[in-house]
Every structure is written in C-alpha cells, then in structure tokens.
Design a protein around this nucleic acid. Structure first.
Length: 184
DNA sequence: GGAATGATGTACT
DNA sequence: GTACATCATTCCG
C-alpha cells in the first residue's frame, strides 16, 4: 500500500507518525506528523477543490503524492499532500509536527526558540521547514519528501476541522491522541 | 466593479 | 479574549 493511496481520510490517518523532511542549503530539517485534516472532492463545502480546477488550486488535482501549497490570509502558507486519483481534487492538510531534526534551523526561521512553538500549526510548520510558494505542485520525492511511519503512532483522535465555516459537521481532523505537539 | 472572506499567527489588553 | 496584518479569490450587484 502506497503512502498516498486511498481516500483522503485514509491518507490523513496514515500520515500520522510519518516524517516530513526538507533538505536545503541550510541543512536537513524533519518532523513527525501529529495532526492532519482531510479535504474531500465531493460533499465538502470547505475544500478548495469544490469549484473545480482554478489557477490557485490546480495542483490539488495532480496525482497523489504532489504538494499543494497556497497562501492564506494574505500572510501565511499552508502545506497539503494530494491524495486520490489524478484529477479528483482531494488533499490532506498537514497541521502540526513534532520537531525531530534541525531544531536550530527551524528556530532561526521562526524567530522562536521553544520547541512547542516551532511546528504547532499549519503556517508555523511551513515556515519552520522552509516551504515556500514555489513548492506548490512539486512531487514529494526530492528535497521535500515524506517517510512512512515504521510503527503505529498510537491512538488517533478525530474531530471537526479548524478555521473553516462550512462543513463543520464533518469529523475530518485527525491527531495523535494527547500529543503535546498538536496545534490545539 | 466593489465588498467580504479566508484550511493563520502574533501582539496586545 | 480581542485586534490586526494583508491580498488573492469569491461572491454579489
């Protein structure tokens, strides 16, 4: 079973415990994924793909395993992993990481030293890992990649997604239960 | 064409 | 807990 195969929900759960790695001139930084959200192709009023492909969301319709990076609130960026069949329009938002490698580089990028402030939110982890708008649409098999988990992350908690105003009733947010590294 | 909003984070009260 | 940065996209007229 590929890391990205199956529904966005399946991938959102499977990515918990996997390790997101980014290697740059500044060094290698890595973190364990502890919180994700699924965004569906149909029946999901909060998904960027709900209007079909546009200039902004086109990479969400690429094949599974590509990155979808977009700017939010005109300020921050968020990082997603495309899932499902090419052209479908499903993705998983990575919301929080447990910092594992390159903590000093992360802290320098973030301007904050406390480990729990490094990657505890979608905008934060993007900044800590050095992910930029240019990563939108890249395949996650190069400098930016994800290593599948080797063992179970433990109990998984599910609940409503954060920061949206539509489809709040869908329990599409997943996290490692009681992890101190989640966004909330 | 114009107004409202948004998958957020930070600073300030 | 509330205010605000900041801008592309979305929604309405």
């Amino acid at each position: 079973m590929s890391l990205y195969a199956g529904s966005a929900v399946a991938v959102a759960r499977r990515l918990l415990g996997a390790v997101l790695v980014h290697t740059t001139e500044e060094g290698r930084v890595a973190g364990r994924i502890v919180e994700t959200e699924a965004y569906l192709a149909v029946g999901d009023g909060a998904s960027h793909s709900r209007m079909g492909p546009t200039d902004r969301n086109r990479s969400m319709f690429l094949a599974a395993g590509h990155a979808y990076v977009y700017r939010i609130y005109g300020v921050h960026h968020c990082f997603n992993v495309v899932t499902g069949a090419e052209g479908r329009g499903e993705a998983v938002l990575v919301r929080a990481l447990e910092p594992l490698e390159g903590l000093e580089v992360m802290a320098a990028r973030r301007g904050r030293a406390r480990p729990q402030d490094l990657c505890s939110g979608p905008g934060k982890l993007v900044q800590a890992l050095g992910i930029e708008a240019g990563h939108d649409g890249v395949l996650l098999d190069g400098a930016l990649s994800i290593t599948p988990r080797e063992r179970s992350p433990g109990p998984i908690a599910a609940g409503p997604r954060i920061g949206i105003s539509r489809s709040l009733e869908l329990p599409l947010r997943f996290g490692v239960a009681r992890s101190p590294w989640c966004s909330r």
